[in-house]
C-alpha cells in the first residue's frame, strides 16, 4: 500500500506517526458531484485553464498530489503580474480542484478558497523575487464529508508565501503543506486551525524547507478535539546546509474536549546549519481552569468562557480570512461544534 503524509525523519514505528494510518488513506477516485466556481476575481487578473509549468513541478508533502490531479475536474490557474488588493475568491462544493498560481517579480495576490461538502484541493504557488502570495483555505466539511488538501510553494529571493488552512469539520481530514524557501530573505507564514469531532480522523504533515539565507518561517496550528477524534500532526522545520541566519518558529496548541480523543504530535526541527534559530512550543490538554475561572468571575457563563478561550486560539488562522461573512461563519461553526462537544 502506498504511504501518505510521510514524516520527514521517521521515529519509533509503534507510535504510528511515520505516515498516515490506513484510516486516513485517500480513495483512488473522487466523484465531483458538485462544482468549483470563481465568485470574485480582482479586476485585470486572468484566470484560465493552463497551468504555469513552474507550478506543475512543485510537490507537496502529502504524496497524493498526483491522485488529486487525476481526480480534479476543476482548476484555477493564473500568472499574477500585478499587485491586487482584492482577493480571488473560489467556492467549491463537493469537488476536486487544482489551482496553480505563478506570481512574477513583485506581484501580489490573495486567494480565498471556501470549501463545502467533500473536497480535494491541490494548490501550487510559485513566487518570484519579492512576490507575495496569500492563500486562505476554509473548509466547512460536515461529519459525512472527507477532505484532502495538498499545498506546495516555492519562494525566490525576498518572496513571501502565506498559507492559512481552517479545517472546521469532516470525518476524514488529511492535509499536507510544503514550503521551499530557496531565495535569500524569503518567508513562509503558515497558520492552521482544525476542529475534530465524532469519529473524525485528522492527519497533517506541514513542512518548511530552508535553503536560502535569512529565511523565516512561522508555522502555527491550533486545534480542538472532541468525541473520539484521532489526530496526527507532523510539523517540520528543516534547515538545510547553507541556510544561514534562518529563523523558524513552530507551535501547536490543542484543546482536548473529551476523554476518548487521541492527539498525536511530532514537531520536528531538522538542522544542518549552525547559524540558525529554531523554536518549537506545544501545549496539549484541557482548557486552563484558572483562566476559565477568571473569565467566569467577571460574569461570563462557562460555555461562553470556554468558547472565548478556544476562539482566542483559533484567531490566528481565522482572523486571516479576508472576508467578513466567511470569518463570521467560521466562528459560528466553531461555536456550534463546541456546544456539541
Amino acid at each position: 500500500m502506498e504511504k501518505f503524509n510521510i514524516i520527514p525523519s521517521p521515529t519509533w514505528n509503534r507510535l504510528g506517526v511515520n505516515c498516515a494510518e490506513e484510516s486516513a488513506s485517500i480513495p483512488e477516485t473522487f466523484d465531483s458531484v458538485g462544482a468549483s466556481v470563481i465568485t470574485a476575481c480582482p479586476e485585470g487578473l486572468e484566470v484560465g485553464d493552463d497551468a504555469p509549468i513552474a507550478c506543475e513541478e512543485l510537490k507537496s508533502s502529502t504524496g497524493f498530489d498526483e491522485i488529486i490531479e487525476n481526480n480534479a475536474e476543476f482548476s484555477f490557474n493564473a500568472t499574477v503580474e500585478d499587485k491586487y488588493a482584492h482577493p480571488l475568491v473560489i467556492n467549491t462544493e463537493d469537488a476536486a480542484v487544482v489551482g496553480n498560481i505563478y506570481a512574477v517579480e513583485g506581484a501580489e495576490l490573495t486567494i480565498l478558497h471556501v470549501l463545502r461538502g467533500s473536497s480535494e484541493t491541490l494548490t501550487r504557488v510559485y513566487a518570484e523575487k519579492g512576490a507575495r502570495v496569500n492563500v486562505v483555505e476554509v473548509s466547512f466539511a460536515e461529519s459525512d464529508n472527507i477532505r484532502y488538501s495538498a499545498f506546495a510553494s516555492y519562494c525566490e529571493e525576498g518572496a513571501e508565501v502565506r498559507f492559512t488552512r481552517c479545517e472546521l469539520g469532516g470525518s476524514r481530514v488529511v492535509c499536507g503543506s510544503k514550503a521551499v524557501l530557496q531565495g535569500n530573505s524569503s518567508a513562509y507564514d503558515f497558520a492552521g486551525c482544525y476542529f475534530g469531532e465524532g469519529e473524525a480522523v485528522l492527519d497533517f504533515n506541514d513542512l518548511s524547507e530552508h535553503y536560502g539565507r535569512d529565511t523565516l518561517c512561522e508555522m502555527h496550528s491550533a486545534g480542538a478535539l472532541s468525541g473520539s477524534a484521532d489526530k496526527i500532526l507532523r510539523g517540520t522545520i528543516d534547515f538545510k546546509e547553507g541556510a544561514k541566519r534562518g529563523v523558524g518558529h513552530e507551535s501547536e496548541d490543542v484543546i482536548l474536549l473529551g476523554p476518548d480523543v487521541r492527539d498525536r504530535t511530532a514537531p520536528l526541527i531538522l538542522c544542518h546549519e549552525e547559524e540558525v534559530e529554531g523554536q518549537h512550543a506545544a501545549s496539549h490538554g484541557r482548557l486552563d481552569e484558572t483562566a476559565l475561572y477568571y473569565l467566569m468571575s467577571r460574569g461570563i457563563p462557562e460555555a461562553q468562557a470556554r468558547s472565548l478561550m478556544v476562539e482566542a486560539r483559533f484567531a490566528r488562522a481565522i482572523d486571516r480570512i479576508p472576508d467578513e461573512t466567511i470569518r463570521e461563519e467560521a466562528l459560528t461553526t466553531v461555536r456550534r461544534r463546541l456546544q456539541n462537544a
Binding site: 507510535l15 506517526v17 473529551g258 476523554p259 480523543v261 511530532a266 518549537h280 506545544a282 490538554g285 484541557r286
Partner: peptide
C-alpha cells in the same frame, strides 16, 4: 512525539 489519549492532562513541549 506526543501521544495523548485523555483530555484531562497537560502536556507541554519546547525545543
Amino acid at each position: 512525539v506526543m501521544d495523548i489519549r485523555t483530555d484531562k492532562c497537560d502536556v507541554g513541549h519546547e525545543a
